[in-house]
Design a binder for these strands. Structure first.
Length: 820
RNA sequence: GCCGGGAUGCUGAAAUUGGUAUACAGUAUGGAUUUAAAAUCCAUUGGAGCUUAGCUCCGUGUGGGUUCGAGUCCCACUCCCGGCACCA
């Protein structure tokens, strides 16, 4: 336990935090765009007190901000609150505290914490998404999408969370459970508002390649989420009927091997197809059985494939063959057309199904000769490439070529057409909830759906409301809200009672910061075009898909509407890892939350910041270790004492050392290392270890009574280099060294190229690849001189003896290897 | 199953991207200082062996390969963590 204070952190921290406020260190004049730098952290949801895991995000952002300020950039570092959302409403239902109140309380707590952490923001630009001056413009965004026909309403089977009493987007269901409250999700049919993000699927996919400075893993996740596939839609006429069933396949080369067709049990045409079937009852009970298994359950377990014959046949238009029509549980109605053409020889699922129900298997792609088998001996489907067989005019082609030729042929004779398919689905934005931005739409008996005119925004959320544990949205009972006049005919009309998904709020907030209090428009196009895209966006990897994809989508819509001149909102993205405690993500429910407040009280905030940064590479998850915090605390004590010592020595007249000392070189090497580590991508952990080395070397120099002015210079550099990480102690020490201006008005130090190399090098000498000796040589030695030196070495002579060497490999400045 | 990421001391982790593996910390042990403790400072802290001022081998999940030289590159595999999942 640290019972003796290393340095008076409790005095200096509040002092400097106040000072930064007084000199308005972080307020940004956005009219000046020279050297602009927009550093953005994902705005937090006000959930209550922050833990050290949250802290990582803000500390990283703060380090970048302070570093860039010292680089001379005009830095915009804003903050706000993603303040709408379910938890506040759930609290209201349980605790009778109004969401507005609880949200404001939480914001107060978190704001205090951010200040206490010493995180620098331009607080004049603070935004809160649940206030009318913000959500007015969220509603405006909705109207713009509506005008562009990118917002539409449709009835859809949606995920229904019985606990939250709200609809969840497919994307928000985790396993079979609600992302937020972990309740098992059911299904319900409702009229819902959607944003047509699928219209942008291709562009969202294409532009991923423009995101040079995004983590590879995030780009891959988004690519997979959009899930593009190209294939062919083929029409299959049903025998003795005028129904035509359309199938989608990505393997049109296997079409001649189709031996049956399968429909999803909820395919819309089933009723028509089986209305005269003798097995009608059996089929209906099968459908009922499959529908009882919800989608997630069907997917999560490797359940047995089951199916039933419909007693109907379809014609394969490629070869006019009559094939049976089945229903099966492994086909999903949500994907493709809900109808699958089954090729058991070349699709494993079809293969298993065919084996079970004794359906024929026919090979149409011949694998390499070695692995050929007759169909009845196959143990699994062959899904690889090969040569076409049994495919009439396409026999002998390789299947990749055949795929194109067959598609051409089908388009020619009009039995099929090429199509592109995306997994991405439209963004469901309706929430049957109170605590969100009301959807600005009015329903009139005469005029139908009428958008609220822009001049009537915002549609205010009524504050006097009753909260009910279940049932309809609280807005449904609020007559003053619902009853209104039609903007068109002035007749009686009702308001939409759904509110918007909070991802809508967060899909455009980064534009609002530039003109946070402008009540005439959502954002200032001129400013936004100068300041965007965001130079550095920092947030948790959990937002890798939803938030980041929606923001990209909205940015593109606003670009298309001519409001902005950029198609991508964030040019550089950093996703930090989670802080783990006892092997799990910190959460209140798991009871493993580490509160920063106590640690800050005990060690000071700089220690907590330093440890958070030193714990490991920021993009990786890291296990929090309370005891290890003390190491960071001790280090800051060492820095403090070093600065105190050089301060006292400052009066000593420095004697010029004839040669550049080791410490001088170390200073410049450290400046280079720290600068490179920050620029090269958030490698704060190694930057800090380099500073630690410089401190250690300074103490050694002190012990050896080396030139005090050099040691003082080293201490000065330690303070400067450390200042983005531990700003409070650095400010104080900077002042102690006799400076009157804030350290953040200082320029980031530059290193001297000539001094970053050692004057002497220790070159390892290998013989046949094994380390045998080391020679010390001048740093600027040339290859020949180095060789000579090596062969004079006693140990080398001993190893080689009289033997002739075959060759000598010299890696300049690195090593010499002699092959004997 | 597929797609990502990873595996290095007792622990968190470094390694100039193919060039002295384990930097910087943490932990532990011993010592100095102290009436005592805390704090501070010093030493040791991958393994084995030896003829122990030191030296020699082995050692980066496993097995192979390329190379003068591999934690790093190639092939095959095992395990762990994320994401997706009967996607036609």
């Amino acid at each position: 336990m640290a019972q003796v204070k290393q340095y008076p952190f409790d005095e200096i921290e509040p002092k400097w935090q106040k000072h930064w406020q007084d000199i308005k260190l972080f307020s940004c004049d956005v009219s000046k765009t020279k050297d602009k730098y927009y550093c953005l952290v994902m705005f937090p949801y006000p959930s209550g007190a922050l833990h050290v895991g949250h802290g990582r995000n803000y500390i990283l952002g703060d380090c970048v901000t302070r570093y860039k300020i010292m680089q001379g950039a005009n830095v915009l570092s804003p903050i706000g609150w993603d303040a709408f959302g379910l938890p506040a409403e759930n609290t209201a239902i349980k605790g009778k505290l109004h969401p507005k109140k609880s949200t404001e309380d939480n914001i107060k707590i978190m704001k205090k914490q951010l200040h206490r952490w010493g995180i620098g923001y331009d607080w004049d630009r603070e935004i809160t998404s649940c206030y009318p001056d913000y959500y007015k413009w969220t509603q405006w965004i909705f109207l713009k999408l509506y005008e562009k026909r990118l917002a539409y309403k449709k009835k859809a089977a949606v995920n229904w969370c019985p606990s939250c009493q709200t609809v969840l987007a497919n994307e928000q269901v985790v396993g079979v459970r609600c992302e937020r409250c972990d309740t098992k999700v059911g299904e319900k049919d409702l009229e819902q508002w959607f944003f047509k993000i699928t219209d942008y699927a291709q562009r969202l996919l294409d532009d991923i390649s423009k995101l040079e400075h995004w983590p590879e893993r995030v780009k891959i996740m988004q690519t997979n989420w959009i899930g593009k596939s190209t294939g062919v839609q083929i029409d299959f006429p049903v025998v003795d009927s005028d129904i035509v069933l359309t199938c989608y396949t990505t393997r049109v080369d296997t079409i001649f091997g189709a031996t049956y067709m399968v429909l999803a049990p909820s395919h819309p045409r089933i009723r028509d197809l089986i209305k005269d079937s003798p097995d009608k009852e059996k089929i209906y009970s099968f459908i009922k059985k499959v529908k009882a298994q919800n989608k997630q359950e069907r997917a999560s377990v490797e359940i047995e494939k089951e199916g039933i014959f419909t007693q109907r046949y379809v014609i394969n238009p490629a070869n006019k063959r009559k094939i049976p029509l089945w229903l099966a549980n492994y086909v999903l109605v949500e994907y493709g057309t809900g109808a699958v053409i089954a090729v058991p020889a070349h699709d494993q699922r079809d293969f298993e199904f065919a084996k079970k129900y004794n359906l024929p298997i026919e090979i149409v792609i011949q694998p390499p000769a070695s692995s050929r088998q007759p169909p009845e001996e196959l143990e699994e489907a062959y899904e690889g490439d090969g040569i076409q067989v049994n495919s009439v005019q396409f026999d002998g082609l390789d299947n990749r070529t055949a795929m194109e030729k067959i598609a051409d042929w089908m388009e020619d004779i009009k039995i099929g057409r090429r199509t592109v398919h995306f997994k991405l689905r439209d963004w469901l934005i309706s929430r049957q909830r109170y605590w969100g931005a009301p959807i600005p739409v009015i329903y009139c008996e005469k005029c139908g759906t009428v958008p609220v005119p822009e001049k009537d925004l915002p549609v205010l959320l009524p504050e006097n409301i009753k909260f009910k544990p279940y049932g309809k949205s609280p807005l449904a009972d609020c007559k003053e809200f619902i009853n209104t006049k039609c903007p068109k005919c002035k007749g009686k009309a009702k308001r939409e009672i759904d509110t918007m998904d909070t991802f809508v709020d967060s899909s455009w907030y980064y534009l609002r910061y530039l003109s946070a209090h402008d009540d005439t428009k959502a954002f200032d196009s001129k400013l936004v075009n100068k300041w965007l895209p965001v130079d550095q966006y920092i947030g948790g990897v959990e937002h890798a898909i939803l938030h980041l994809l929606y923001s990209r989508f909205i940015a593109k819509v606003l670009f298309d509407l001519g409001y902005t001149s950029f198609g991508e909102p964030f040019s550089r993205l950093f996703t930090q890892g989670m802080i783990i405690k006892n092997g799990a993500k910190m959460s209140k429910s798991k009871g493993n939350v580490v509160s920063p407040d106590e640690l800050i009280k005990k060690y000071g905030v700089d220690t907590v910041r330093l440890y958070t940064l030193f714990i490991g590479p920021p993009e990786r998850d890291a296990e929090w270790n309370d005891r290890a915090v003390e190491g960071s605390y001790r280090f800051l004590g060492r820095v403090w004492r070093l600065a105190e010592q050089v301060k006292n020595q400052s009066s000593v007249v420095s004697r010029q050392s004839p040669e550049t000392s080791h410490l001088t070189r170390k200073i410049h090497q450290t400046i280079k290392k720290v600068t490179d580590d920050i620029e090269g991508g958030f490698k704060f952990n190694t930057a800090i270890s380099a500073i630690m080395e410089l401190v250690n070397d300074s103490y050694i120099a002190l012990d050896e009574n080396q030139d005090p002015s050099t040691i003082k210079e080293a201490a000065k550099m330690v303070i400067l280099l450390l200042s983005p990480f531990t700003p409070h102690i650095c400010e104080q020490l900077w002042q102690n060294l006799g400076n009157t201006e804030s350290i953040f008005k200082q320029r980031w130090p530059k290193f001297d190229k000539d001094l970053i190399q050692e004057e002497q090098l220790t070159i390892p000498v290998q013989i046949n690849g094994k380390l045998r000796s080391k020679v010390i040589v001048p740093a600027d030695i040339d290859e020949e001189a180095l060789k000579e030196k090596v062969f004079q070495d006693k140990i080398v002579k001993k190893w080689i003896g009289d033997k002739k060497y075959k060759k000598v490999i010299v890696v300049p400045k690195h090593l010499v290897n002699i092959v004997v």
